[in-house]
Nucleic acid binder design. Structure first.
Lengths: 197, 197
DNA sequence: AATCTCACATACGGTACGTATGTCAATCCG
DNA sequence: CGGATTGACATACGTACCGTATGTGAGATT
């Protein structure tokens, strides 16, 4: 066996813990997830956890940052191929669709705000919100959108998408409700468009 | 001393516990609030609590139901004096303003969804959402709003207002941010209006 | 090769929840 | 009117879990 480098195994263990935490937090919720179980599942103890993440919330923050990054990547992908305005709509739709994932919903949308506070002040900076803000800023400066406060518009759009997603996820037939949510979202977003002079 | 009726004192104690819980949950959050402290503050023990509310989450549900009812009343007040459309906008603005209250924000908007699940399935039925749905339904049937799915629109509006409120509350100067949030909200809501033919 | 570092394990204390059991006043009934 | 009964609440207990303080051994350093 090649001699295990120290930093190497540490990063492996960090990744293992984050991975196990994603599962446990998504299934049981942050509050009900046991750190003993979590760590035992990957052959470690709480000692590793507290050494790497400081405390339980530190682990949550790491998990949230990881998922948030993945979400922002997907949202950008969805919006990149299209024009600015269509891109924003596509980002919103993608955001709604992603929130159907239990990990996203439970960890990022529910437990994240409850235990880590306002998303805009997370260590991970809430990359998703940042992406939306940039899109809105472009659209405002090019005159497509009315001269609205950029942060306000971005937070409203994200908030609306988030809530739509929670609704879809809680419904009995997500697949039939999803298009309604997307349609209403996109309709509402048109309210931000600049009026034709 | 008039002989204390049994049911009377029980309801008094229930009210005391709910009142104490509102304070404790708002200040420390649901997870960090100690039931021992809570009950001791009003001269009782956990015995009373588990007898009346079943468990910790039962108490949270009772608190949420109370606050939710108060919020719905205020929102209706705000909207009642005006026309349907202006009423909806006023309700949204009122909703945003109310969310500045720490009790509303922490208990109903953050811990409620995290620990009790989707608001639309709460025992309290989320009266707030119901009020918005009724307003939207009226506006759709009278042709003011585009023929959008009522529940979708209501959830999006509430979600947008909610998120705007969290943003305002987390900002350093809530009073200067509040008008921006309300403006953006009302602008976005116009997207739901029926197009002039 | 001896020493050191540090990632992680182990052990402990404290706290909080939920339940099982006890108790006493308010109510009911003969 | 007085004993039996109910039930609202207190008390006591077991369990689970978090965070910390301390130990340890494999890899890094010299």
């Amino acid at each position: 066996m090649a001699p295990k480098r120290r930093i190497e195994t540490m990063e492996e263990n960090r990744a293992k813990l984050i991975s196990a935490a994603r599962k446990a937090f998504a299934e049981k919720g942050f509050a009900a997830a046991s750190m003993d179980e979590l760590t035992a599942d990957v052959g470690l103890t709480r000692g590793a956890l507290y050494h790497s993440f400081g405390d339980k919330k530190g682990l949550l923050a790491a998990v949230v940052a990881q998922i948030d990054g993945e979400m922002a990547g997907r949202a950008q992908e969805a919006g990149a191929a299209k024009g600015d305005w269509e891109g924003l709509l596509a980002e919103g739709a993608a955001y709604i669709a992603m929130a159907l994932d239990p990990e996203v919903q439970r960890i990022v949308l529910l437990d994240g705000p409850a235990f880590l506070g306002d998303p805009s002040q997370w260590p991970s900076q809430n990359v998703c919100l940042e992406v939306t803000k940039q899109a809105v800023a472009r659209l405002v400066s090019e005159g497509t959108l009315a001269p609205v406060d950029v942060e306000a518009a971005a937070r409203l759009l994200n908030g609306a998408a988030l809530n739509a997603a929670l609704w879809v996820a809680a419904s009995e037939e997500p697949q039939s409700v999803l298009p309604k949510a997307v349609e209403a979202f996109q309709l509402m977003a048109t309210g931000l468009l600049a009026k034709r002079s």
